[in-house]
Design a protein around this nucleic acid. Structure first.
Lengths: 120, 120
DNA sequence: TGGTATAGTATCAAAAAGAATACTTTTAGG
DNA sequence: CCTAAAAGTATTCTTTTTGATACTATACCA
């Protein structure tokens, strides 16, 4: 927690969902439900095994996801969003909404700039 | 926008507020109102001039903040949250709330682990 | 003439994040 | 005995982000 000397708990929430992969992992687990390690790999062909492991471990550490190991051979490990993790959903939904609107906003802006080009 | 091949507009919203400094800059502009470049520097003693410039430029690019230059000498440049930028406030508030609650959650968890230590 | 102030750039170094690749364990199946 | 499958580790890069430091333009002030 010493990463954020400045007050402001926004950063605490931010840390749960930032990174190149976390939002995508969360999306898959929230929308698609429980998934095994290699299922996630298949869903995200560009992530490396290492990055997937690291991200899952972090999310687990933060109680956002749950990891269940079935002592079989070959091993089976299932990941799912935790009850606590579900409390992030409204936030993620709002962000999704805002993101959509922002894409519109920027599209509009581009058009305006394009139209203004006759003035240059 | 090619940074996010994967659907999911959460990342778009995320980009407006992530980074080591952006949440803090936004906080100052939202809570404290219009600020000059060096005022922000004083408010964030650890940021370098370069990082402050880069972050402000990005936020401006994204229409989140406004930059007004007064053609005086020495120059005066004022930064403020834009009307559009204000649409982020509910999001930031929710994140703040969630962050607070999460700190509580983790504190509770730590205590539990501490109590469990007698069992090891 | 030199110093001060503001709001930056420019350049290079360090640190953090991410990617590539190879290797491990265990048991079943051929 | 050899191979396969799942879920990782370990090690070594490469890339991206940040940081440190120095430098600039302009006009006013002593």
């Amino acid at each position: 927690m010493e990463k954020h000397p400045q007050h402001c708990q926004v950063v605490v929430a931010l840390d749960m969902i930032v990174g190149k992969w976390k939002p995508i992992i969360l999306q898959h687990l929230i929308i698609g439900g429980t998934k095994r390690f290699n299922e996630l790999r298949r869903l995200m062909p560009d992530i490396t095994q290492r990055m997937l492991t690291l991200n899952l471990r972090e999310l687990e550490e933060q109680d956002i996801i749950e990891r269940v190991v079935y002592p079989e051979v070959p091993p089976r490990v299932e990941y799912s969003i935790s009850e606590y993790g579900k409390s992030l959903e409204p936030l993620l939904d709002s962000m999704h909404e805002w993101g959509m609107a922002h894409l519109e906003h920027m599209k509009k802006k581009e058009k305006e700039l394009g139209a203004d080009d006759k003035s240059s």
